[in-house]
Design a protein around this nucleic acid. Structure first.
Lengths: 195, 195, 195, 195
DNA sequence: AATGAATGAGGCTTCATTCAT
DNA sequence: AATGAATGAAGCCTCATTCAT
């Protein structure tokens, strides 16, 4: 098979890279990543041909992890659409709070200029059902092509800001979560049809 | 006093750094910055003792430029508070659209981990009148200490997302600007007192 | 275990450093050392993490070389204590005469301020039997703690001066060696018990 | 006159260089020396065309200072030759103890490889009366050309070692001074004619 | 005469990647 | 498949010296 020998080592490398990049930015050296993954310097390059390849694989891996956790915990039985969206919101933020290194790492990757268009595309198509769920709760103007991406962007911006504050002051996380959600709700949904 | 240290060269270095960092991130080399500023590499270090010093000075310089332009163009005669805030919003976004490199550079600096607390402080205290103007238009819950910083963060997040989209698709900038502002207004102000 | 780190290269680096530092002082560049050792500059830093590390390792290496040669050639069968000490003296000076670069290098290292306490300690404990042999021949006042180190210092000072002259005028080395030894004998031993 | 304007500045530069080199070795930068002398970077080069020139001038200046102090305090009325030499010995060592920076600086200069033959010559001829005084007290073998320089070297070596210990443990200086002198006396003078 | 801004070569060190083992 | 030694380009910064002011 094309995949190299040990999936364990691949995961170990991705995890080590997450920690290293969270702490040192993308300038974290491949040597340090390999070392904390418990493999030799050269081995890293058998799993990822290039440092940039590692960065892109890592981005996808983290996004996938995040998305699948959110999805698997959404409360589809929730009474109202608002409650359903609130469940997504909370899961999203909870995951980031419990994975602050992953969060920091993704931020670094996102602004690194190393993530290719192709990678971004792959991530965008990763969980169509999640996108659909969010969009259906959103005010009409943000639902159609011309402003759809913009709506997504605003949603993410609010969520990420909420996460920043929640990570920085964990004991106040519930307040930030709730206030953030209500703010997003006012911002992006049809206020006339609140629930 | 011999040749005085040239303000022109300082500016040239800051401008060169802005471009280089916008394109290459903070890993832009001091050599490349000096070269495109038209001075020797050693000269750079007479103006900024350290690359980190340059980064901090650059951050302050860009923020100051941005803030002073916004402030000087705010329409204090505007009929309503909403219109006043809209004027700030538009000026902010217009500046960023017309200075996409400065914008990109500031993003890189902000996440670089090289900006010191002291620099952040200096920037925070730079335009108190601007802060006051924005805050007075904001809903009460975001005006008092426990959530003030959070409110600022959400405001900035929405503005920056709007800027991102406006820079990426300049011809649609007016739509993003307006939609973004209305979204922010719903999100952060007291809807009961809409104008 | 891949290629093992080559002891040959380590030695080549230490030898190259000896020559370079003998000639240029500790300001000899790592580039020049690596070049004359026949390796890439980066390689030097796989063997010695830091230039200072190289300097300390070199100091230990040279002292060890010197000490072990002296020790292995001491004439323990010599009739009198004076003759035994004379054998040490001669071996010491002969080594330095035949290794003038090593000698010059050690002088530079000794005054460089880069040799750590730990390194000095390690060197001091390197050949206890040699110390013991010298001390037992020395006059009582220099044998006990308060002045022991001082006695060692004076011994070394006389030896090093003798070496300086012997290296500078090799053909007169025997005279310097003998005169130096007799001078040291008068200076540091119990004249009442001359042989 | 050929001498530049201010003798004060020349002295200030020499003093500043003494301190800087004592602490940092000859790699002390000309900029730092100029700064602590209270003059501009460029000014240093109006007094000393080159860093090497400064180093040589400094060596001569320090040696002259040392020699003239010793000479002016020698007790020519002392009863015995031994007492006269003891007076030189004590003055020498006292000067170094009270000028530890000058001492450290001279050591650095002496091994720097930057002191020219010409400078060494000039220093050697600086105080012929002092040389004569010391030599006349010395055992015959060290008085005639073949071994005269060697005798001087041994004398200096013992003195400098004594100084090292006296500077390192100032409260025990008197013991080192006396023991050192007696050792030198045994080593270099005619024991048969002790006083 | 004095200043200090400007220079650019050179120093130490890091790092992604290759390749012998 | 895995290792880690080897590489050399590139990065940041220092410094003696020059020269415009």
């Amino acid at each position: 098979m094309a995949r190299p020998k040990s999936e364990d080592k691949r995961i170990a490398l991705l995890q080590a890279a997450t920690v290293a990049i969270a702490q040192a930015g993308i300038s974290a050296s491949t040597a340090s990543i390999a070392r904390s993954a418990g493999v030799a310097e050269g081995t890293l390059f058998r799993y990822f041909a290039t440092k940039d390849d590692l960065l892109n694989a890592l981005y996808i891996w983290l996004k996938h992890d995040l998305g699948s956790i959110i999805l698997q915990q959404v409360d589809f039985e929730a009474a109202s659409p608002k409650q359903q969206l609130n469940s997504v919101w909370d899961n999203y933020i909870d995951w980031e709070i419990t994975h602050p290194l992953a969060n920091a790492c993704m931020r670094h990757l996102a602004v690194s200029g190393k993530i290719t268009q192709e990678t971004e595309q792959q991530v965008a198509n990763m969980f169509p059902e999640l996108d659909r769920l969010c969009e259906s709760r959103i005010r009409p103007i943000f639902r159609e092509p011309p402003l759809r991406a913009f709506g997504d962007g605003l949603f993410l911006a609010l969520a990420e800001t909420t996460i920043d504050f929640a990570i920085r002051e964990p004991q106040r996380a519930p307040v930030f979560k709730e206030t953030g959600f209500e703010t997003m709700w006012r911002a992006l949904t049809n206020a006339d049809n609140p629930a």
